[in-house]
Amino acid sequence: MNRNLILSGRLFLLLFVFLGFIMSGCNRGPKSEGSGDFEASGGLDAETQAQLNTAKRIFYSLPSPLETAMLIKNAGAQYDEGLMNLTGNTSRYITSKSKALNLGIYSTDLSYASLFDQTQATLNYIEAAKKMADGLNILNAINEETIQRLEEHINNRDVIIDIISETLMNSSSFLQENGLEAVATVVLVGGWVEGLYIATNLVDENSLKDNKLVERIVDQKLSLDIMVNLLEESPEDADAMAVLEDVKSLKSIFDKITIKQGNVTAVEDPATNVTTLKSESSIHITPNVFKELRSKVREIRTSYIS
């Protein structure tokens, strides 16, 4: 009996050690696939090297809420507070999915407001984003100290943008480090949809030609496969799968838009060490497709903020 107990204890210990190693592996980053394009330079034994060459980490990067807002501002868009989600809506968001989506949505609104120097709106939207982050138990992504710093520097756009960038990184890293990659993706999709909603509502469908904001909207087609791949990494997550359906419905409309791209040539300026990727491209979108896109974006965004 005593011997059996000792054996059970040892087995238990082995099991925990094994679990520890498994967890170490699970937390080491995104999924792996494919084979390497780099040549091995020696050192490891052939077997280990072969294993490493076939295990490659894959990251998919979506536009962050801050980048989305920067693209809108950079395209010459105007500020329209009426296009942002009301901060009074925060109490509506009870589920994890709605909190994640609206963390992204409020983060885009926050970035949009701050880039246009809307101080009061900036303070209101960081509070709204904080409520969503707190609701998702994201520790210290946005804390009281963050808000205090924001208030102290409310008239310094550069510092404000830095603070927003830091809060986004805090949320994203917390979610990824705690195995909540699917939630992190849903947050980004929420922010991306909000950016698309704002942008498509700032464009007149009869003025599509030579319109920088239209170009930015059309450019989003280039990120759709990244978004689909990222969401498909979480087939066990019902929220990610629901959002994937929305993204696919948008993709079917983006598929009606044409982007023609020529070859890319990299030319470095030796004086500045900045490289220009030279290439030609053209886009084609009809007013009807634009209206269809705007309508679908509005439908999806309404479902997210309701």
Binding site: R28, G29, P30, G34, G36, D37, F38, A40, G43, L44, T48, Q49, L52, N53, A55, K56, R57, I58, F59, Y60, S61, L62, P63, S64, P65, L66, E67, M70, L71, I161, D162, I164, S165, E166, T167, L168, M169, S172, S173, Q176, E215, R216, D219, L222, S223, I226, N229, S281
Partner: peptide, 25 residues
Amino acid sequence: QHDGNYHAALLIEGEEAELYKTFYS
């Protein structure tokens, strides 16, 4: 200006990673 996105992982010598992203004109 950092965009706020976080892409980091623990890698061992010899290990590879790939990242896909859209960059704008």
